[in-house]
Amino acid sequence: MSTPDTREAAVITGAALALGDDALVLSHRLGEWAGSAPVLEEEVALANIALDLLGQARVLLSQVGDEDELAYLREERSFRNVQLVEQPNGDFAHTIARQLYFSTYQRLLYGQLASGDGPFAGLAAKAVKEVAYHQDHAEQWTLRLGDGTTESHERMRRACDALWKYTGELFQPVEGLDVDHAAMESAWLASVTDVLGRATLTVPEGPRTGAWAAGAGRQGLHTESFGRMIAEMQHLHRSHPGAAW
């Protein structure tokens, strides 16, 4: 039996892991773009966003324990990130759609956390400024691609559709996060609907959760590509147990 204090600590730890893993995993995916972006300015922008997210991840994971042990020595079933952030980069439109959905969520989330006095208020106050840039970047590119050429419109439409089923998970309540998930969800839908409309795109019609997707990532149930991603991420660290870098 846990005492109320340790119970509370465990809840905060769980929430920090959820947020930290989201940032860690998305940062890793964005890092995969290095050297392959469509223009030099995007090399800078994507790396910048990846670095912001990695910075958030490090603060959050350090609240839980040793950041490197947590990043490099947990197995796939112990990661608590939402499935959206682990989705492969795909083409630039898929990366942008993932950024649009996630940064819109993160801005609402950190906005709420920053205005409260919970254990994440300090981090959220700093992160919300970074996330506002990420959201702006994603929106600008959604507009350019959606309302660009026939090809870019089609690619952006496909990307928005393909990732739609991972967006419901964002609003599954996370214990320890003192936010109004329902209000966040409606604000998220309104914001995304507005951007997609301005980008001459329509809001995807399918369900926002798959049969497995509701709350799955938060419970350590991930998609297949995730295992390969962390195999690559962890391989060197795991090959030298106990080494310092």
Binding site: H28, L54, R58
Partner: peptide
């Protein structure tokens, strides 16, 4: 994607960004 610690990963990403 294989940097062995988060600190080294951040340093390396920042460096590659600087090169761009």
């Amino acid at each position: 994607t294989r940097a062995p610690s988060l600190r080294r990963k951040a340093i390396l990403m920042a460096k590659v960004q600087d090169e761009a």
